[in-house]
């Protein structure tokens, strides 16, 4: 089983459009996973039928029983997150600031503090319009622990691949270099970086590459909107070459992507003559 993770550093370079296009190339031969749990968009194109759903619990938040609290303020003293407010004769928790460390509950002399498990989202197992199975989720509004949810979606995708005897998993990752990206990369077999020939694109590509090289997995790069700035595009190709990253191809700035997206389609469906050969070749290069 091979797990391919699509990352970019910078947001909006086209990760999800690429993931959706690959889904229509591979059809039922790959399992899809949406690990951009903060802004999960892959389902908007793949329009999956949800087969199973499951609440996802992770982490805790403190709650102070107002009847038991004697207002001693010990919890306020130990909290490093300014999450305990002294309100009159009792203490209260500001949930948005509470990181769920539990320290306040350990020191409360009257046992007034409960740690409540947090339902941070919902996980889904689905069947997509492209024929593939898909693991995805919806993170609760303002929830923490997105890295844990990424790990759960990846685990679901893997068990789907085992059950359906699929050799490939394609994961749509999130922007940035923090915990969701690290969780996406861990255990992956191939990183597909999608970038664009802009100063920001290069800057962010370099940072995400420095992160992903630590995972020692084969990495390839696709340059999107490459004709926006030819010089910068060449600069990226040189960077890839110097760092031993495979250059997997370039996509010109093309309105097909927005037109397809507005219809809820991938470019493979919108303009198959033009895009099917390109993404088929990309897929073959990834599999090499």
């Amino acid at each position: 089983m091979r797990e391919i993770v699509i990352i970019s550093g910078k947001g909006g370079t086209g990760k999800t459009s690429v993931a959706a296009s690959l889904a229509f190339i591979t059809g039922e031969r790959a399992v899809m996973g949406d690990c951009d749990v903060d802004a999960a968009d892959l389902h908007l194109i793949l329009d999956p039928d949800i087969l199973e759903r499951d609440d996802f619990f992770s982490g805790v938040k403190a709650e102070i029983d107002q009847n038991t609290c004697n207002g001693c303020g010990k919890c306020h003293e130990v909290c490093r997150f300014d999450a305990v407010l002294i309100a009159g004769s009792t203490c209260r928790i500001e949930p948005l600031k509470c990181e769920g460390c539990g320290y306040c509950s350990y020191v409360c002399p009257v046992d007034a503090i409960d740690l409540k498990e947090q339902n941070i989202g919902e996980c889904y197992i689905s069947r997509t319009r492209a024929g593939s199975y898909m693991a995805h989720s919806r993170l609760g509004i303002g929830a923490d622990n997105s890295g844990k949810l990424v790990t759960r979606v990846k685990r679901d995708a893997r068990s789907l691949a085992e059950k359906t005897k699929n050799d490939y998993i394609i994961i749509d990752g999130s922007p940035g270099i923090g915990c969701p990206v690290i969780a996406s990369l861990s255990g992956a077999d191939f990183a597909l970086m999608v970038t664009e020939p802009t100063r920001s694109g290069i800057h962010d590509l370099q940072r995400v590459w420095e992160l992903s090289r630590n995972f020692k997995i084969p990495t390839g790069c696709l340059i999107n909107k490459n004709d926006l700035n030819h010089q910068m595009s060449k600069e990226i190709e040189t960077y890839l070459h110097n760092n031993g990253i495979r250059f997997l191809g370039a996509i010109p700035y093309d309105t097909d992507f927005h037109k397809a997206l507005s219809r809820g389609q991938s470019v493979i469906e919108y303009n198959p003559e033009r895009w099917k050969p390109f993404f088929r070749e990309l897929w073959n290069k990834i599999r090499e």
Partner: peptide, 14 residues
């Protein structure tokens, strides 16, 4: 601010 809807955004907009 960072993209997304989880803890980094909440911290940045707080």
């Amino acid at each position: 601010s960072p993209p997304g809807t989880s803890c980094p955004v909440i911290t940045a907009t707080y």
